[in-house]
Amino acid sequence: MTSQVNRCTVTTGFFVLGRCGRAAVAACGQCGRPVCAEHATGALCPECALAQGYAPQDPHDPAWVRGYRRRHYERSSQTYNDAYWYSSFDEYDRGAFNPGDEYSYGGGDFDDDGMDFVDS
């Protein structure tokens, strides 16, 4: 059996994506994927190297959103002279946007397939 050359699996391109495909010279020290000489960033692949520049993803951390809500609450309750109406999205508001509650053609452009929002 002949051994296959390992190929670099780093994603390339901006609008049309592909795989690098050059011969790999190393493995990423974090995720282990094969990388070519051009894509080896120190001991890491570009994806792992870039991730180090940002705080770990914690989508459930409500701290930032809470800060916004407080400011928004103060402002809107003054504007409308109503301390409750425009406070923030409450459980009732959120309850309308659970999976499966959208129309069956999809949640507009904002669904599980695309998860995005407004189309052009």
């Binding site: 309308a96 959208e102 129309y103 949640g107 507009g108 904002f110 407004v118 189309d119």
Partner: peptide, 23 residues
């Protein structure tokens, strides 16, 4: 601005109330 969620979401999420879209 390619679209306004306050308008578009009413067309895609049937349970979204006018008050929610107001927010």
């Amino acid at each position: 601005v390619n679209g306004l969620p306050s308008i578009e979401m009413g067309h895609t999420w049937p349970w979204a109330s006018p008050a929610t879209l107001g927010k």
